[in-house]
């Protein structure tokens, strides 16, 4: 770029017409410039406007870049099925042992849950039987207790399970320092060591 500008400056100073070929003048300086220009022909043939030609052209509606990126990601080989893990002998045996232990643990938990439910069910059945026969009211209370009106309804219609029931269990529940319905006070910021 500097060469070209220098050359054009010299040419204007010497009153020489700027021509692509060096036919008219074969001076040493011009020869040197010619070789320099030869190396970067695109500059000489560049259009007059300095702005990028892309802006001037009418754009064809291309694919959204975001879609292209999503496609790259979806079809990238790392997101395809990974190759199977290969363990050495000892590592495989260790995995097998852990896996069996884990299965035993899970089965034990499942069994414990089942037994607990069965215990609750049997207790419920015994209590109902007692209510039916031993309450001494001819089973009136029992019949009341057996009514299931609105059990399978929805809260909007005055039945079902209220939405307040659904609350995921957490290990610690924030206390409501500002009373019921107030903001939960999980951390006591004003606490000081006594």
């Amino acid at each position: 770029m500097t060469c070209l500008s220098l050359r054009s400056a010299l040419a204007s100073a010497f009153g020489i017409l700027a021509r692509p070929s060096g036919k008219a003048s074969t001076s040493l300086l011009q020869n040197a410039f010619r070789t320099a220009r030869h190396q970067r022909p695109q500059i000489a043939t560049a259009p007059f406007s300095t702005s990028t030609p892309q802006f001037a052209k009418k754009k064809k509606a291309g694919t959204d870049k975001r879609i292209t990126l999503i496609r790259y990601h979806l079809h990238h080989p790392t997101t395809l099925n990974p190759r199977p893990l290969r363990f050495s002998r000892n590592r495989a045996l260790r995995h097998w042992t852990i896996h069996r232990a884990w299965n035993l643990y899970r089965a034990k938990i499942k069994r414990r849950r089942e037994l607990e439910l069965e215990r609750q069910y049997n207790a419920m059945a015994a209590a109902n039987e007692e209510l039916r026969l031993g309450a001494g009211d001819g089973g009136k209370l029992f019949r009341k207790a057996q009514m299931k009106t609105g059990t399978w309804s929805i809260p909007e219609r005055g039945g079902g399970i209220p939405i307040e029931y659904a609350r995921g269990q957490v290990e610690w529940v924030g206390t409501t320092a500002g009373g019921v319905g107030g903001p939960a006070k999980i951390w006591d910021h004003g606490w000081k060591r006594a």
Partner: peptide, 11 residues
Amino acid sequence: RLLLEAFGVPF
């Protein structure tokens, strides 16, 4: 539906 109500899905 009752199960999902217990989970907290409004109907």
